[in-house]
Design a protein around this nucleic acid. Structure first.
Lengths: 157, 157
DNA sequence: GTAAAAACCAAGTAAATCCGTTGGTTACCT
DNA sequence: AGGTAACCAACGGATTTACTTGGTTTTTAC
C-alpha cells in the first residue's frame, strides 16, 4: 500500500472530472490551472489512469477527458492502484529460519492491516465523496451565506 | 497523508515490540535480523518513534526497546505520523481566482477523504491487530493442517 | 485544406526521498 | 575494564517525484 502526493493529485484530478465532466469533457489544461499541477505531469498520471480504464480521452479541439465509468463505480483504491501501485512486500527473499518465528507473524499482521486499508478505500467512491462534500456544505452554511450563493458550488474555505 | 514502505517498517517493528516485549526489551539487532531491515535505518526510525514517546529505549547490555505506552493505546496513525509525517497540502499558494471555483472544492473533498483515512487508522491499535491475527490463526486453520502445523503460523501464500 | 486545439508520446533532469554505510559517543551491566 | 547496546551525525547510491522540452497524432473550425 502506498499513498503519496501523487495519489492526491490523481484523486483530486478525478474529482475534478466528476464535478465538471457533466457538460462536456475537461481538458488537462483546465485541471492544470485549477489545481496548479504541471500539464505534462498530469499527462503522465492520466496515461496510467487511461490504461486502467478510469478515464476516457477525447482528442481534438473541444476534447478532454471523461470519467471512464460512472462516478459511483470508481473507488479511491482504484485510483491509487492505477497511479501508485500497491507495493506488496516485493522483497520476499529473507525467509531463512530466524531464531523466533516473528517475521512471518509480523508479516501476516501487516498483510491483514494492508487488506483492511484496501477494503476501506475500496468502499469510498468518487460520488460518495462528492455527496458527502455537498451534505457537509449545505449543513454547515450559515443562513446568511445562503442568500448570496452565487459563485458558490457547495463548499466553504 | 503518506503511507510507504517506511511506514511498513515502522509498523512491523512496533508489532515486533508488542509481540516480544513482554519478557524484557527487544534489541534493534533482533528486529534487524527478523525483518531484514538495516540496523541503522532502524535506528533512524526509532529515533523518530522515541521522540514521539512511542518507544522507550534501555541502554547497556540486556537493553533494547519497549513500547512507550500500552499496546492498546498506540494506533497505526500514531506510528505513521511519527515516521512519515502526514503531508497536508503544503503548497497553499496558488489561490488566485481561477475561472471556476473548483480548486477549493476538490481540496475540501480531499481534506475530507484524508480525515476519513486518518480516523480509520487512528482506530486500529497494535493490540487490535495482534488480537485479530490471533483470532484468524486459530479460527481459520483447516483441520487437516492442524496435524502438520509445523512451519505454519496462520497464513498461506 | 490549413490552422489550431487538444490528446498522446518519449527522453531527460533537478530535487527529494529511501535505505543503507561508516564511524563514532554514551550509558550500563558483568 | 570490557562488552553490549542505545544514541548520534554525516555521507552516498538508487529510486522516485514533479517538471521540462519537444515532439506526433487526431479532430474541430474557419
Amino acid at each position: 500500500m502506498r499513498l503519496s502526493t501523487k495519489s492526491r493529485y490523481a484523486v483530486t484530478a478525478m474529482l475534478d472530472l466528476a464535478l465538471n465532466g457533466t457538460q462536456g469533457p475537461v481538458t488537462l489544461a483546465d485541471i492544470s490551472e485549477n489545481q496548479s499541477i504541471s500539464l505534462s505531469y498530469l499527462e503522465q498520471l492520466f496515461a496510467a489512469l487511461r490504461s486502467k480504464g478510469l478515464v476516457r480521452g477525447v482528442r481534438g479541439p473541444g476534447g478532454g477527458y471523461y470519467l471512464g465509468r460512472e462516478a459511483d463505480t470508481i473507488t479511491v483504491a482504484d485510483i491509487i492502484c492505477a497511479v501508485d501501485e500497491w507495493v506488496e512486500y516485493t522483497r520476499s527473499s529473507a525467509y531463512r529460519g530466524s531464531k523466533d518465528a516473528q517475521p512471518q507473524t509480523t508479516r501476516a499482521l501487516w498483510d491483514d492491516l494492508s487488506e483492511q486499508i484496501f477494503d476501506f478505500l475500496d468502499d469510498i467512491t468518487l460520488s460518495s465523496l462528492v455527496v458527502r462534500g455537498a451534505e457537509r456544505a449545505t449543513a454547515s452554511v450559515p443562513e446568511t451565506a445562503k442568500t448570496l450563493s452565487l459563485g458558490l458550488r457547495g463548499e466553504a474555505a
